[in-house]
Amino acid sequence: MSLNTLDESRDPLAIAEEWMEAGRDVAIATVIETWGSAPRPAGSHLVIDADGNFHGSVSGGCVEGAVVTEAMDVIGDGKARMLEFGVADETAWRVGLSCGGRIKVYVEKLG
């Protein structure tokens, strides 16, 4: 029985390292701030590659699609972006959080 350290096959930051080592371009999205009943706490990660493969979660499924799309742009131009999601958004019906919370997500390229 080994010590329980990192779950290498499921941990987003371990996966990011592995993807990078395999020569893939990778972006990391991190929940920076939450208000109200946001589903995932600050520090939660989603890792994304240039083909749109992703692992982890920043909202339990509500806005991952939008984050993946932005992340592919971040991989393309290398510029970090700060995204905000919430029910007060104009885009609420498309990528809002059904729980009524708001989150801020920082998306950056790895490397």
């Binding site: 350290t5 930051l13 990011a16 390292e17 990078m20 790895l110 490397g111």
Partner: peptide, 17 residues
């Protein structure tokens, strides 16, 4: 995120620090 920072972070996590 700097790759070295990520590697260093994961190393600390793997070593339970």
């Amino acid at each position: 995120m700097d790759l070295h920072s990520l590697k260093a972070l994961n190393k600390e996590r793997r070593n339970r620090r």
